[in-house]
Amino acid sequence: MREMIISELSQAVQDLARGFAHYLPRLIVMLVIALAGWLIAYVIQVVLRSILRLVKFDRLAENAGASQLLSKAALPSATEVLSRFAFWLAWLGFLLLGVSVLGILGLQEQTARFFLFLPRLFAAVLILFFGLLAAGFFARAALLAAVNANVPSPRLLSLAVRSIIVVFVLSVVFEELGLAEQTMVVAFGIAFGALMLGLAIAFGIGGRDLARRFLEEKFVRVKKDQDEDELSPL
C-alpha cells in the first residue's frame, strides 16, 4: 500500500516535471517575446512622442478641443496620451502573441480576435481625433462669425455647433468599435433630437428679437440706415 502511494506520487511528480519541462521552453519564448515586445513598444512610444512633438500635435489637439477634455479628466497632454496608448497597444499585442505560443486553446482564439479588432480600434481613434478637430474648427468659425455679426450669445451658438458634431462623432466611433450599436443609434437619435428641439425652443423664445431684427434689416431699409455707420474701412 505504502509503496503504491509512493509510486503514484513519484509518477505525478515525474508527470509534473515532464509537463513543466515541456512548457518551459514555450514559457521562456513567451517571456522573451514579452521582453522584446516591451522594448519595441518603448521604442515606438519614444519615436511617436518625438514625431508628435515635431509636428506640434499638442497645438493641433488644443485647437481641436481635445486638450481641454484631457485636462478636465486629469490626463496628460495629447502627445503623451497617444504615445502611451501606442506603447500599451504594441506591448499588449506582443503579450498576447507570447501567450499564444503557450498553445492554450481558449487564449489563442482570444488573441486572434484581438488582432482582428485592432484595425477597427485604429479607425475609431482616427475618427475620434479628426471629429474633435472638425468640432473645434466649426465651433470657432461659428463663434467668430457670431461675434462679428453681433449676434447675441455667440458662445452658446458655438457650443451648440460643437455639441452636434461631437455627438455625431461619438456615435460613429461607437458604431465602428461595435459597442452597443443598437443602443448607440437610439441614444444618438434621442440626444440629437433633444438638442435640436432644445435649440429650436431656445431660438424660438430667446431669438424673437434676433428674428425681428433680421426681418427689419431685410425689409425695412430706413430703420437699418439710421443704425448704420458711414464708415468705410478701406
Binding site: L143, V147, D227, D229, E230
Partner: peptide, 21 residues
C-alpha cells in the same frame, strides 16, 4: 454718422467672447 457706442460694445463683447481664441 458714426455709432461709437456700438463700436465699443462690439470690442468689449469680442474681447470677452473670443478670449479662448
Amino acid at each position: 454718422r458714426i455709432n461709437r457706442k456700438r463700436l465699443r460694445e462690439m470690442f468689449v463683447s469680442g474681447v470677452a467672447e473670443l478670449e479662448s481664441v
